[in-house]
Design a protein around this nucleic acid. Sequence first.
DNA 1: GCCAACGTTGGC
DNA 2: GCCAACGTTGGC
Length: 154
Amino acid sequence: MRYWLMKSEPDDFSIADLARKKREPWTGVRNYQARNYMRDEMRVGDGVLFYHSSCPVPGVYGLGTVASAPYPDPTQFDPKSDYHDLESRRDEPRWVLVDVAYAKTFAAPVTLEMLKDDPKLESLVALRKGNRLSITPVEKAHYDRIVAAGTQSR
DNA sequence: GCCAACGTTGGC
DNA sequence: GCCAACGTTGGC
């Protein structure tokens, strides 16, 4: 079992949206490295830290799980979608995704500020300077530590 | 809105 | 294959 941090802009899709829908295809990833994580390395049941980016208080707001094997992202073939990719062919789709299932909403988010202030999380890939990847792997010890921070009552 | 960092594109 | 130009991400 592996662990991942997946970013979403809450104005676009938030942990509350996932809580309501229970399960969601992770559409719109158009970065090869992030795609490769979904295509090659994720397994059903993997743990997901749900991160809100580009918002007033960025941070981890809750938990999900990987809920499907990889399959083609339907938005790449949808001319009306912002994620439409003219060069992707149906017999050889360029972009794949997985479904993410809802697991938990933290009572209070584990903010980016908290993540950065924790020396034990110094090597968290998502915190590396200049990192813009929307999906990054997370070590189990880091995952456990962030879950503990998000779960404890404050 | 700014800007650093990084990925992608395309001319050569 | 190089690299400048451009676009995007995301924190602030």
